[in-house]
């Protein structure tokens, strides 16, 4: 395309060349084929870098492990049976539990925050939004490193508490479920706040005034007007928080211990350490399928809820 863009631009004589006619056809977009043609590059890209890789993963989950991380293409369900074995099922359930708690906590912490930003922040709103984006775009490795400094056995938090005399011996904070969930909430809170904020922004303020005019109190207005109208944001925020939580492995690797091993760690381990790719693929497929069914069920729930509202 680049070379065509650089084509001579003085068509003062209006002798449209065939190249230019073709480009005009493409840009005009009355013909569905032109639309498809313009969408081909992105589609091919997603096909090569997303759909085929995921499909190959699903296929590999049915194969057998060969020597030296090779793969023998025989059809078997053994990897799935192993992935749902009680030894690994614990990890799956733990991951789902952590992801659900993180999502819940993010909603509890994020909703008041988004509500404040949208309704009370006034002129400072833009500055506050930028301030929210900076931690969101900071490399999560760096933040993890700081949390280690804060939460460690001889870390800032323990030192402060010892100095204040609140505790006599350092607490074990790092490498516990608490520190992992804290890390997850830290990383994914902005994923919750941003969609909540944008759906609160879309609520016409006249609706709320009307509710007050008709005699409803603050709480009644919130429950009956604001909250139902903000539901799309709640749903979007929950999905955007839950999905990356399910696949997270860095947080558990650095802030957690052996008791907080998550699916992400298992997948990473199978692909990079144990070199059992078919089993790793099966675990990833379990992760993916549970995620897809979860999101699907959630969307069904969402549409029902929205119809009711």
């Amino acid at each position: 395309m680049r070379t065509i863009i650089a084509a001579p631009e003085d068509s003062a004589l209006k002798e449209t060349s065939s190249v230019e006619r073709a480009l005009s056809w493409l840009v005009r977009g009355k013909d569905p084929r032109a639309s498809h043609a313009m969408l081909i590059p992105a589609t091919l890209w997603l096909l090569c870098f997303l759909l085929l890789p995921v499909a190959s993963l699903l296929a590999m989950s049915l194969a057998t492990r060969g020597p030296y991380s090779s793969v023998i293409w025989t059809f078997t369900w053994a990897n799935f049976a192993r992935a749902l074995d009680h030894k690994y099922l614990v990890i799956v359930l733990r991951t789902v539990g952590y992801a659900l708690s993180t999502t819940g906590l993010c909603l509890i912490l994020g909703f008041p925050m988004a509500y404040f930003l949208s309704f009370y922040a006034g002129k400072r709103r833009e500055t506050l939004m930028i301030l929210l984006m900076i931690p969101f775009w900071t490399s999560c490795l760096v933040a993890i490193y700081s949390w280690i400094i804060i939460l460690g056995r001889a870390g800032l938090l323990n030192n402060t508490l010892l100095w204040l005399g609140v505790i006599k011996t350092p607490l074990l904070i790092l490498n516990t479920p608490f520190s992992v969930i804290l890390g997850l909430v830290y990383f994914y809170l902005p994923f919750m706040i941003l969609p909540l904020f944008s759906s609160l922004e879309k609520i016409p303020r006249t609706y709320i005034e009307a509710s007050y005019d008709l005699g409803a109190g603050t709480i009644e207005t919130f429950v009956k007007v604001t909250l139902p109208l903000a539901l799309p944001g709640v749903f979007a925020g929950c999905i955007l928080t839950f999905v990356p939580c399910i696949g997270d492995f860095l947080t558990a690797e650095f802030l957690g211990g052996p008791k907080t091993y998550l699916i992400g760690n298992l997948v990473q381990n199978q692909f990079l350490m144990a070199q059992d790719w078919p089993f790793g693929a099966a675990v990833t497929s379990v992760l993916l399928l549970s995620l897809i069914s979860g999101v699907y069920l959630y969307q069904r729930l969402e549409s029902q809820e929205l119809e009711r509202a």
Partner: peptide, 14 residues
């Protein structure tokens, strides 16, 4: 909508 770890191992194996 895809956890990054899934994309990572998918791309690697593909």
């Amino acid at each position: 909508m895809m956890p990054e770890v899934v994309m990572g191992v998918g791309l690697l194996s593909f």
